[in-house]
Amino acid sequence: MNDLLHATLSGLQNGLTSLPLGSAMDNTETWQQQFLQSGQPELQDIAREMGNLQSLLTSGSLSATSIGNSLTMLGDQTSQVSHLASPDLKANLLKLADTLRRHGHELLAHAAK
């Protein structure tokens, strides 16, 4: 899980458009499966929002507002579950949460123009 977390953070550091859609989909599917199988309601909620994000990304008409809201929601959910993580994962989970929220807010700001 630590390797997957590092890969996710690395992929998002350069911005959303630098991450190929196929890679983003593979990454979210891997997280989604782990979270769905976790048996923890908080993680299953994140998995459902990831499914929503995947649908938004593959719908054919990308909505900056919808994708921005989804990323912001995922950031908030990730921050909320960081207390469940071991200390070595917690800092990176919080960094991921901040990154997701930042990208979400950037998309929302762009959509409002």
Results as ranks from 00 to 15, higher is better:
residue 1 M to N: 11
residue 1 M to W: 15
residue 1 M to H: 06
residue 1 M to T: 11
residue 3 D to I: 04
residue 4 L to W: 13
residue 4 L to M: 08
residue 8 T to A: 11
residue 10 S to V: 15
residue 10 S to W: 03
residue 11 G to R: 10
residue 11 G to K: 10
residue 12 L to T: 04
residue 14 N to P: 04
residue 14 N to R: 14
residue 15 G to T: 10
residue 16 L to S: 09
residue 16 L to D: 10
residue 17 T to W: 06
residue 20 P to V: 06
residue 20 P to L: 05
residue 20 P to S: 11
residue 21 L to T: 09
residue 21 L to D: 07
residue 22 G to A: 14
residue 25 M to V: 15
residue 26 D to V: 06
residue 26 D to M: 09
residue 29 E to G: 01
residue 29 E to H: 13
residue 30 T to P: 02
residue 31 W to A: 06
residue 31 W to M: 12
residue 31 W to C: 07
residue 32 Q to S: 11
residue 34 Q to W: 13
residue 34 Q to C: 13
residue 35 F to L: 15
residue 35 F to Y: 13
residue 35 F to P: 03
residue 36 L to Q: 07
residue 36 L to V: 03
residue 36 L to A: 02
residue 37 Q to W: 00
residue 37 Q to N: 02
residue 37 Q to F: 00
residue 38 S to N: 11
residue 39 G to R: 02
residue 39 G to S: 02
residue 42 E to H: 15
residue 43 L to T: 05
residue 43 L to C: 10
residue 45 D to C: 02
residue 46 I to P: 00
residue 47 A to M: 08
residue 48 R to K: 14
residue 50 M to V: 00
residue 51 G to Q: 07
residue 52 N to C: 11
residue 54 Q to V: 13
residue 55 S to F: 05
residue 55 S to E: 10
residue 56 L to F: 12
residue 57 L to D: 04
residue 57 L to E: 05
residue 59 S to Q: 12
residue 60 G to M: 11
residue 60 G to L: 08
residue 61 S to M: 12
residue 61 S to V: 14
residue 62 L to A: 06
residue 64 A to R: 10
residue 64 A to C: 09
residue 65 T to I: 09
residue 66 S to F: 07
residue 66 S to L: 11
residue 66 S to D: 14
residue 67 I to G: 00
residue 67 I to M: 02
residue 67 I to K: 00
residue 68 G to D: 03
residue 69 N to D: 04
residue 70 S to R: 00
residue 70 S to G: 01
residue 71 L to T: 03
residue 71 L to Y: 04
residue 71 L to S: 05
residue 72 T to Y: 10
residue 72 T to D: 12
residue 73 M to V: 02
residue 73 M to I: 03
residue 73 M to G: 05
residue 73 M to L: 15
residue 77 Q to C: 08
residue 78 T to K: 01
residue 78 T to I: 01
residue 78 T to L: 02
residue 78 T to M: 07
residue 79 S to W: 08
residue 85 A to F: 00
residue 85 A to I: 00
residue 85 A to W: 00
residue 86 S to Q: 12
residue 86 S to L: 11
residue 87 P to N: 06
residue 87 P to D: 13
residue 88 D to C: 12
residue 89 L to K: 09
residue 89 L to C: 09
residue 89 L to M: 11
residue 93 L to A: 04
residue 94 L to W: 01
residue 94 L to D: 05
residue 95 K to H: 09
residue 95 K to M: 15
residue 97 A to S: 15
residue 98 D to P: 03
residue 98 D to N: 12
residue 99 T to F: 01
residue 99 T to S: 01
residue 100 L to T: 02
residue 100 L to Y: 12
residue 100 L to K: 02
residue 100 L to G: 03
residue 101 R to L: 12
residue 101 R to K: 14
residue 103 H to M: 14
residue 103 H to I: 15
residue 105 H to V: 15
residue 106 E to V: 02
residue 107 L to A: 08
residue 107 L to W: 06
residue 109 A to G: 01
residue 109 A to M: 06
residue 110 H to C: 12
residue 112 A to Q: 13
residue 112 A to K: 13
residue 112 A to H: 11
residue 112 A to Y: 08
residue 113 K to D: 11
residue 113 K to I: 15
